[in-house]
Computed example of a mutant assay.
Amino acid sequence: MTSTTLEPTSAQAAPPRPKPTSAFSAWANRHRKWLFAAPAMIFVAVLIIFPLVWTAWLSLTDSHGSVRAAAKFIGLQNYATVLTDTTRFWPAVGRTVLFTGVVLVFEVVFGMCIALLLWRPFKGERWVRVAVLLPLVATPVAVGMMWRLIFDPNIGFANQVIGWFGIPPQPWLAGQETALWTTMFIDVWQWTPMVALILLAGLTSLSEEPQEAAKIDGASTWQRFWFVTLPLMMPTVIVAILLRGIDALKTFDILYATKGKGGGSFNEVETLNVYAYGLSFDYNQYGVSSTVLILFFLLIIGVMWALTGRRNKKKEA
């Protein structure tokens, strides 16, 4: 009897052994999310670090006239000059802080009111949303030019309106005492919708259970907002303050579009941004301008640190 040897078929063949994974491949697989994001992160880091380092270096020199001209290293002399300047620098710091603080208060308060209005569905809600978002459509320069015409003391529509009520014409942007407050109004008009959108997103993410429980306990509408909604919304409110606060600190386009060089003839709306711009492009004092920008950068970092710390405390609580 002859024995027959059966050859294995393709279906019966042993599965191929997996190739050994190299150490680099294993490491890359574990850190793939960072590797994919690394090019973008490096690109952004270069865009931020190089200008910052270059500006810091210029602040330690007497660079002026031209950025290509030879500059002499003078150490902290520019910082001493700027920090003792009570004519332009410190008034600009005061206006920057005042401008940011005032617009933040009004934008957060009005933004919360708008967000609460849009929180619940109502008839015509779509049209109201479109109307609320209209100020965000135009660029800040266009908004500044539009309000400059509206507040013109001679042909402006604003003085015509208040004239209907027997109020005498106001200087608005032309007055030393009213110019800064008028630019604050313009900023609030344009950027309140953005704050409202952030707060509305936070409101829509809240659970309905705390509201229902407070309503069953007999809490009024104001009590439900103050003791239930607002505490739950505080992390979102702090985020809105952080985002809008940093942007308000850096406001330049509206101020320059409405008042021009130097923030007006008497520097009435000259903030740190406008001051640094004038030093660079009007007087070509690049070393002093870089010093102002570095100090401005430190101010922004301080505000971010304070608000971020406040947010972390709220999370821990």
Rank of each mutant, 00 (worst) to 15 (best):
P51Q: 09
F252Q: 02
Y79M: 12
K33T: 15
F266L: 13
E107N: 07
T5V: 12
I167F: 07
R129A: 05
V53N: 03
F50K: 11
E270P: 06
W222D: 05
L117N: 02
T4F: 13
T86N: 11
A56R: 05
D217I: 02
Q170K: 07
V97D: 13
M233E: 10
N159M: 09
S280W: 06
W222G: 08
F252G: 01
V137E: 01
L199Y: 06
F36Y: 15
V46L: 14
A45I: 13
T221Y: 05
G245A: 05
V103Y: 02
F122R: 04
P168W: 00
I48L: 14
Q211N: 10
N273S: 15
V303P: 11
L206P: 00
P121I: 04
K314E: 13
P121H: 03
A40G: 15
W34R: 12
G75F: 15
V109M: 11
I238L: 14
V105I: 11
A276Q: 02
K313F: 00
D62G: 12
I49V: 15
V141G: 05
E316L: 13
M112T: 11
F73W: 14
L180S: 02
R311L: 15
A158G: 04
I155P: 04
A13M: 07
W147A: 05
A38C: 10
Q190N: 10
E125R: 12
M184H: 06
D282G: 02
G101N: 12
T84W: 04
K259T: 14
D62H: 08
R126E: 13
V53Y: 10
M184F: 05
F110G: 01
F185P: 02
I294Y: 03
V195H: 00
S289F: 01
N78P: 00
L60I: 06
L206V: 03
R88I: 11
T87A: 08
Y277P: 02
G202K: 09
E268W: 05
Q77A: 10
T84F: 00
S22D: 10
E208F: 00
S220I: 06
N154H: 11
W172R: 05
F266E: 07
P153T: 08
F185N: 02
Q190I: 08
P231A: 02
L249Y: 15
L299I: 05
K215S: 12
T2C: 03
V97G: 13
F122Q: 04
M41H: 02
